[in-house]
Design a protein around this nucleic acid. Structure first.
Lengths: 272, 272
DNA sequence: TCAGAAATCTCAATTATTGGGATTTTTGTC
DNA sequence: GACAAAAATCCCAATAATTGAGATTTCTGA
């Protein structure tokens, strides 16, 4: 809420410039974009470079640096959802000609944390680290449907047009009803919401407190399903079971005091 | 050089606490470790959390957060060495029962940036993001041997005992001779230097300026080599060719102005 | 070798950061 | 559901650290 300045935040603002669309920035461009003074900017850049978050390309400016890579390795290690889910993701990819994703729910974001792919040229590609929209697709709904009402409402209200377009419901109450059904069924299905012709089938992963913290998802071409004589429901059952298995193993970890684990890094709740 | 304070660096010092051995820290522990005041520490933690670099675990403190994952995705995208090398790494893993690594040289560090594995239970495991020692193993020497003399000397001097132990040479001149041989041969081999019974075979990857920026490496059980009737030299030739192919494609990218690429993020040179 | 640009340095002004202590919120327990 | 202990946040004056204009140095390419 607070627009607090703080030189730390000004540092991170530099990192925020680097996006999928723009992976290189020169000091010039950064100055223009953020309005920092020259000496200040260079000081920031030096700090970031010394810390390894940026590296300078000979004549072309800066890119993200190796420290990021190192830290991601540590994140993979510290996240039991990844540790445990990996096998299930890979198994699903082996069973069906699909890409299979494990997507984590962080506060207001969905982030793919592991994926596997068993088809040559996947049309929808979500490798680790790519963020996803919170209001579209099977994954989104698998999570949303299992959130406490308190948290559902603001999200639904905000993205009502999206839901209407998809056919989930045109009023908040309608959407809530649809989500209730999804919750009871244990999985959600989306037809071509993200990529045309591709079916997404997702099921929620719970922490030991029964809160949804992730979703397991298989995306498969509609034509491939047909070709293999598979029904969506069959696949969905498999996904649901695999997700349940992850939840189960997570809960076990929780109870076993010999292992260190984290649980639900999602933000508590925000006054939307 | 400079022990400059700077609140940015104090922020990053918090991130530096998180290591493979210690993935969770409570504010208490951080205060004790870094000596920050309580309000200050909490301010820092909030900044880091808001930026997504940390997340708070319910009752257990903090871990690294999702922003790291997002940034690593961007790094993978911006590093052409990964983009190009991936296929070669995977191909080698398919050809031999081994793990196959692509390791990047960043200033004074070696960092695995991609790996593949074709055996069930690999004894030496180097997934993306795990740093490696700069003075041990085939990878290290593949890089070192191709560095300009200017940069070789200080490194060798500093790690002379290591080299002596491995049998590369007991004086700086001896080591330089050995490295020259490696450079001429085009690949380096290490027997059980990192893991007993495991052979490492590595070849350098060059940027368009003929500077070594990475190494491609296959690690394979000595017994597996024998069982398959493979000679080290045969495998080494394959590794060398694959690495050369990466170098070649990198150089091509360099000349093709339609692609944005980075080149050699390694630090220029430091007054060792 | 030299010009033009890029990066760094110097140092005084001032602002934003700091930390002691009070206060509020959260957590765990009864 | 209420209570005590701990954890996190707030307040605000003091001050130390950050800032930026301009000079200077280093780099880059011709």
């Amino acid at each position: 809420m607070s627009v607090s300045s703080g030189s730390g935040e000004r540092l991170f603002a530099i990192l925020d410039l680097f996006t999928e669309d723009r992976l290189e920035w020169t000091p010039q461009e950064i100055m223009a974009e953020l309005g920092y003074t020259r000496p200040t900017l260079y000081r920031y850049l030096r700090t970031l470079k010394d810390a390894g978050f940026l590296t300078s390309l000979p004549g072309r400016g800066f890119t993200l640096g190796p420290r990021v890579v190192e830290l991601d390795f540590l994140v993979r290690r510290s996240d039991p959802v990844v540790e445990i889910g990996r096998d299930q993701v890979d198994a699903l990819a082996n069973r069906y000609p699909c890409s299979s994703l494990l997507v984590r729910y962080y506060g207001k974001k969905l982030l793919c944390v592991h994926s596997a792919c068993s088809i040559p040229d996947p049309r929808s590609s979500y490798p680790r680290g790519r963020p996803m929209p919170l209001a579209r697709g099977a994954i989104s709904r698998a999570i949303l449907a299992n959130l406490p009402r308190r948290q559902q409402k603001p999200i639904i209200t905000e993205a009502l047009e999206d839901f209407a377009e998809i056919g989930i419901g045109s009023t908040v109450e309608d959407v809530l009803d649809s989500l209730r059904a999804i919750r009871r069924r244990g999985y959600s299905i989306a037809h071509g919401e993200v990529t045309p012709g591709v079916v997404g089938i997702a099921a929620p992963v719970f922490d030991s407190g029964r809160l949804p913290i992730a979703a397991l998802c298989v995306t498969i071409e509609a034509t491939a399903l047909e070709a293999q004589g598979l029904s969506e429901a069959t696949v969905a059952e498999n996904v649901r079971e695999a997700a349940a298995e992850i939840s189960f193993e997570l809960a076990e970890l929780q109870h076993d005091p010999t292992e260190t684990i984290d649980q639900n890094p999602a933000e508590a709740g925000e006054t939307a």
